[in-house]
């Protein structure tokens, strides 16, 4: 059962990694604005669509 000593160490370490990840997210301002990104992600990117269409047409003409 001595393996438990090692496993406990691992579990604390993993938990610390998550805590660190949370602090990183907090520091880089990922919690500052919790609403706008949810809207932003739904916008279509027209510019890219244009390029896709053109490249599709090129394929057809080729």
């Amino acid at each position: 059962m001595n393996i438990l000593y090692f496993l406990i160490g691992c579990s604390v370490l993993v938990a610390l990694v998550f805590l660190g990840a949370f602090f990183w997210a907090l520091k880089t301002g990922q919690h500052d604005d919790v609403y706008t990104p949810s809207v932003r992600i739904l916008f279509d990117d027209e510019v890219k669509n244009d390029i896709n269409e053109k490249s599709d047409k090129n394929h057809i003409s080729d």
């Binding site: 604390v12 938990a15 610390l16 805590l19 949370f22 602090f23 907090l26 919690h31």
Partner: peptide
Amino acid sequence: NKQLIWKIAIAGFCMGN
């Protein structure tokens, strides 16, 4: 208050463990 959130995170982490 960002410091408060830091404290909550640490307290929550310690509590869980």
